[in-house]
Design a protein around this nucleic acid. Structure first.
Lengths: 224, 224
DNA sequence: GTACCTAATTTCGTATACGAAATACGAAAA
DNA sequence: TTTTCGTATTTCGTATACGAAATTAGGTAC
């Protein structure tokens, strides 16, 4: 068992806390980030907070206002559309790659992930649902053995989570999502990789349809 | 006229200098980054250097050694393969998206970029060639109007540039690259988007073939 | 000569300090 | 009352300071 303490730095800790606050919607778009306040809340000096914000800025999750402050980036429907347009091509590709060499042990992992999804569905907690959804897709990215897909999608999920925090999904939609997940796994392990690919493409397309209607209006900072 | 000074911070300046040194091969894989030394060289304090390194670490370009130092990440052929596997799917897709709404003015831009490429080819300077190559592909990403493609490929080009610094390309290969670029533009503006897509797919595939042979061995840090 | 132990030095993370720039506020003039 | 200008305050970027961890070196025992 890995009981090593990674010994995370305060910069990392601060970064994780901030990105989580942003993605969960706790810090909504346009919200100002005051270094002194954050430092006080986390009981650290301003220095690690400053570094963490530098990373967030480099990743586009916060932006300078031209004034003296940084704010959480506005959530742009255009970006959301880009993400799903992108996913509709990349995720079926990930499925195709995953089919190359599936291990038998992977099946156990898949079943576990699907089970967690079921539980999250029954609990009805949005946070759990989003998390489980992400887990499933990240499993596929991992199977693809393509690092670029994994890292680019990691960034995308920050934005996806951010949008999910605003959007409510109907139970029927959620139910369908998880039956499609199961179907993809089934087809993959049955050797029908091409079908799995197509199912994934439809899955992403459908998810976008289901969600996009709700986020037609951009969420931006309050005008002064 | 935009005569505003972007007023870049020392963190940004330092980050750009470091990433450029890494991507150009000036700081080879395994090279240790000493904050004091870098700060002295750039005539800044260690603070912005520290922040810049935090960003590099978050982007995976440097990594902790478990000791007290960070080193430039080793260049992994596996990653290189992932990048081209990815590009072979994503770049043709970018071409497809680009075909949606091409502006007439874009043609002028394209011709300019192609011309710069020719010049770089004649000059024979590797740095210029790589830069021009990147310019061409980034033009396509821009035309796709898909932000995710743009940002993910931006990261990838750091790694691509890094590999290019090691790999020498034969003049014939380079020549072929640029005639293919021209062909893609031609096909796009002639409305043959599907052909342009296929040309791009062949282009990426060919580029990978041409390069991959030379980087079969991983470039890692010297063993102690 | 080799191995080990301890002290000195390096080097990093984080805290604190300082100066500059921008915003907020308040007073005076229209 | 509204606007404008000057001053006080906030807040950030960057410099400097400090303590801890790790590496290096040197010396001693075998």
């Amino acid at each position: 068992m890995d009981s090593v303490k990674p010994k995370r730095s305060l910069v990392e800790e601060t970064y994780d806390i901030l990105i989580d606050a942003i993605c969960s919607g706790e810090l909504p778009p346009g919200e100002r980030l005051n270094q002194d306040v954050i430092a006080a809340q986390l009981n650290v000096s301003r220095q690690p907070v400053n570094s963490a914000i530098s990373i967030l800025r480099a990743n586009g999750l916060v932006e300078d206002t031209g004034r003296r402050s940084v704010v959480v980036s506005s959530f742009d429907p255009q970006l959301f559309q880009s993400i799903f347009e992108y996913r509709k091509v990349v995720e079926p590709f990930a499925v195709e790659l995953a089919a190359r060499e599936l291990q038998k042990t992977d099946r156990r992992h898949a079943d576990r992930v699907l089970k967690v999804g079921e539980k999250a569905f029954q609990s009805g907690k949005l946070t759990d649902l989003v998390h489980a959804d992400m887990q499933f897709h990240e499993m596929i990215y991992g199977w693809s053995r393509n690092q670029v897909i994994q890292t680019s999608m990691k960034t995308n999920w920050h934005h996806i989570r951010r949008s999910m925090a605003v959007v409510l999904r109907s139970p029927e939609t959620v139910s369908q999502v998880w039956s499609e997940h199961a179907k993809i796994v089934e087809q993959l392990f049955d050797g029908n990789s091409d079908q799995a690919r197509q199912t994934m493409a439809r899955h992403i397309g459908g998810a976008y349809e289901a969600i996009s209607a709700d986020i037609s209006d951009p969420v931006v900072a309050d005008a002064d």
